[in-house]
Amino acid sequence: MRHRLLAVLGLLVSLLVPYAPAAAAAAEPGAATTPQVYGAWHCSDDACIWGRVRTVAEFDSMNHWLVDRGDGRPSVNLVVLSFVEPQKLLHRTNDATTVNGVPKGMNRDIVQYFTSRGVRVMLSVGGITYTDEWDAALAENATQLGLNAAAVASDLGVGIEIDYEQNTNPNLAGLQSFITAYRSVHAYDATGAKPAARLTIDTAAGDRWLIGINRKATADWLRTDTPVLDYANAMVPARQPSTSNAIANWQEHVDGKPQYSPPVPPLAPAKFTGGLYIGYGNSPMPECNNFAGSLQKSTGSFVQSVAPKGAGTSSGMLGYMFWAAEKPSSRGLGTQPPNTCEGGVGAGATAYGVPLPMPPLRQS
């Protein structure tokens, strides 16, 4: 009889509450917070090589949407130039596509194109293509790699993003040495006033890939009481997620994985962004050109109000990152004309009141 009564009660509950998203049930949302980071990874016109010097005029003709959403205001407050090859950075290589270890296209003119309009710039070191190069550079001299990255950051007036996508036995001791060396030159700066002091890391969309890197970063480098890195980016998954899948991935970071051995601790919502595609596939994406139908709109309530679950005190993730501006792949659409993103990314910046320039970031 008790089992039948419970079944009836369950049926009544299911009729009264036909849909309850898992992510929403995981944590009561708090007060909405405006996204502070609203940025795009940028791959130039050669699938992330940045192998040639471009004139500012030509670059602007392909990328003007980033600095003008249609009313003179930028569509983003951050651009991450992707990618620097770690071994070339370590050896300060000079070759057909590289000067002193940095791709030729990542130069002062391009940095100033963005910074003169109030858009922060960072360089991403690594990417999935350069995983082996990360391994080799860390094994050879992780400290020198960190010092070289710090010198480039000083020279160009940019921050550095760590994109080390080693899923199997990552060199965490080497990565620690890289970070320690970088911070010996550019100390953590909560005010955000010093561009070169901005040091971030990429993790997977959720907690089930890049587990070792994610665990180490969450436990030791992304703490709110003793911060070492500024924040993490939860990268895009293999394909554009649904609204519910995107939220579920991001909720994993907030919750952590206590069932893992060793466990992955929870991450403060204020210490990470969520990644979405804008240049992907062979047809325009709503995330690029239709904010009303986009994931940055449908996930907006969660991103602005997800409550902490054991780390941090303020509600809401740090914001969004979009993969990727201009031509991230030799196949499929990029975001160059006519497929520009004022109507998606730019409209989102307006809808959310994204601050320009980027303000000091929440610290808890």
Rank of each mutant, 00 (worst) to 15 (best):
I110D: 02
W134G: 06
A22S: 13
T313C: 00
G310D: 08
L5V: 11
A246K: 06
V303F: 06
T34M: 11
E165F: 09
Y113S: 01
G192S: 12
Y164C: 09
H42K: 05
G353T: 08
P35K: 05
I247H: 08
A349S: 15
A268G: 02
D225E: 14
A22N: 08
G51P: 01
L145A: 09
Q336V: 15
T224N: 03
G192M: 11
V111M: 13
Q251V: 13
A150F: 06
T115E: 07
R183S: 07
D230W: 00
G174E: 10
A205W: 15
L78P: 05
A20F: 12
V17G: 00
P227E: 05
K216I: 07
R362N: 04
M122G: 01
T299E: 13
P258T: 08
L123S: 03
T115M: 07
S315E: 02
V99P: 01
L210F: 14
V56M: 00
D202Q: 11
H186T: 10
I247Y: 05
D95A: 03
A31R: 13
L276K: 08
V306G: 00
L78I: 01
K271C: 01
L318V: 02
K104V: 12
L295Q: 04
A47H: 07
L81K: 04
T191R: 08
E133M: 02
R69L: 05
A139Y: 08
P328L: 10
T226W: 00
T168S: 14
Y277D: 07
A311K: 00
R223H: 02
L222N: 03
D255V: 00
T129P: 00
F302Q: 07
H3K: 12
A351I: 10
L145T: 12
A187H: 13
G348A: 01
P328H: 06
I162Q: 05
N289F: 08
L199T: 06
N100M: 10
G310P: 10
N214S: 15
G70S: 11
G212P: 03
M321F: 09
T143W: 02
L145P: 09
S294T: 05
G346L: 02
H64R: 15
V56A: 12
G293N: 15
M122R: 07
I160P: 09
Y182M: 10
L267K: 04
N339I: 01
S124A: 15
R54G: 00
A324M: 13
L123W: 01
L5M: 12
D163I: 03
M62I: 03
D45L: 14
K194A: 12
C43R: 00
T34H: 05
V185L: 07
L318Y: 01
G126H: 05
D45E: 09
I247W: 04
T226V: 13
N169H: 14
T191M: 06
A32H: 03
T129A: 15
P266Q: 11
F291K: 04
Q112L: 10
L229W: 03
D207Q: 13
E326F: 10
N339D: 14
S244V: 12
A27M: 02
V53L: 01
S154V: 03
A232F: 01
A142Q: 11
P357C: 09
F83Q: 09
V37W: 00
A349M: 04
R215S: 04
V306H: 00
W221K: 01
P338C: 04
G348Y: 10
G192A: 12
S305G: 09
